[in-house]
Amino acid sequence: MLASVACRVVHVMLVKRYGRDKPKGLFRQVQSRYATAGKRAEFLKAIGDGALYTVLLAALTKPEAHSIASLVQQADAAYHVMNCPDLVAVSDPDQLTTLMQNVIIRDAAFAVGERSMGLAAAMKKLTACLQEWDRVNPGLADRSSLQRAGSVLWSAEGWEVTPRTPAETYRGGVKLDTVVMDDTDIQFAIDELWRAMREGRASTDATPTANGSGAGLPPT
């Protein structure tokens, strides 16, 4: 539940569009207003000490995903947080270490210091694979079609998981478990994403393979 809430927070903060001529996410819009008022330093002082950065990453990457939808949502949100340098603009490594040790989320130091970095890197690679697929298959990702609830979609606008209700809805984007069937690079990137999520666990699992894991199921 904590990861789900954190995903929604990151989407509103850094991803969601609120108008054609406005920056993506409420974070950038508020930052822009402060900058226009000549108060950018005040904004960074309030938001850039690393506290929000640490709590979001701990909430996003501490719990282990068990579905491709959760995996993509958590990894994509972690990627956006880690690529927002203003969240750590006035912090330093010692301060971040102290925050990780003191945040009231178990194993936060592992989640923030290790798992989040692996997930963000793997998500960057997966997204690059989809961008390359889009280049080879122009226009397909922009088409709107009827999608089942819980479908994992990608388009130039980013990642989306269709809501649980209604059972079907029209959405633009390419369905991940469709394109992965004919593209081994995408399958390998998904496998890397699963490995990044599983890395560091107390228990050991077999290494996922390109032919065995499937886009919709965690490798066993």
Rank of each mutant, 00 (worst) to 15 (best):
L96Y: 09
V88I: 13
I68T: 08
T54I: 12
A65G: 05
Q95R: 14
Q101E: 13
E64Q: 07
T97D: 07
S116N: 06
L71H: 06
L96S: 05
A59Y: 03
E114G: 02
A58M: 07
V90K: 13
V81K: 07
D92F: 09
P63M: 00
I105V: 12
L71F: 06
I105W: 02
A109P: 00
A111G: 06
D107H: 14
M100G: 01
K62D: 03
V112M: 04
N83M: 12
L96D: 07
V90S: 12
M82Q: 13
Q74K: 08
D107K: 13
A109W: 11
D92L: 08
A58D: 03
E114L: 11
D86G: 13
D92K: 12
V88M: 09
A111Q: 09
D86S: 15
C84N: 10
M100D: 08
H80R: 13
A108H: 06
L87F: 12
L57E: 01
D107A: 12
A59G: 03
F110P: 05
I68H: 02
K62V: 04
A58W: 04
N102Q: 14
L57F: 02
Q74V: 00
L99W: 03
I68K: 04
E64M: 04
H80C: 00
D92G: 14
R115K: 12
V88D: 04
V81D: 09
I68W: 02
I104N: 10
E64H: 05
T98Q: 15
I105R: 02
I104Y: 09
N102M: 11
A108M: 01
A111P: 00
A59S: 14
A111C: 06
T97E: 07
A89G: 10
M82A: 11
A69T: 01
S116P: 03
H80V: 05
F110T: 10
V72F: 00
Y79E: 10
Q73P: 00
Q73T: 06
S67W: 01
A59I: 01
V103P: 05
L57C: 10
G113R: 12
C84S: 11
S116I: 05
Q95M: 11
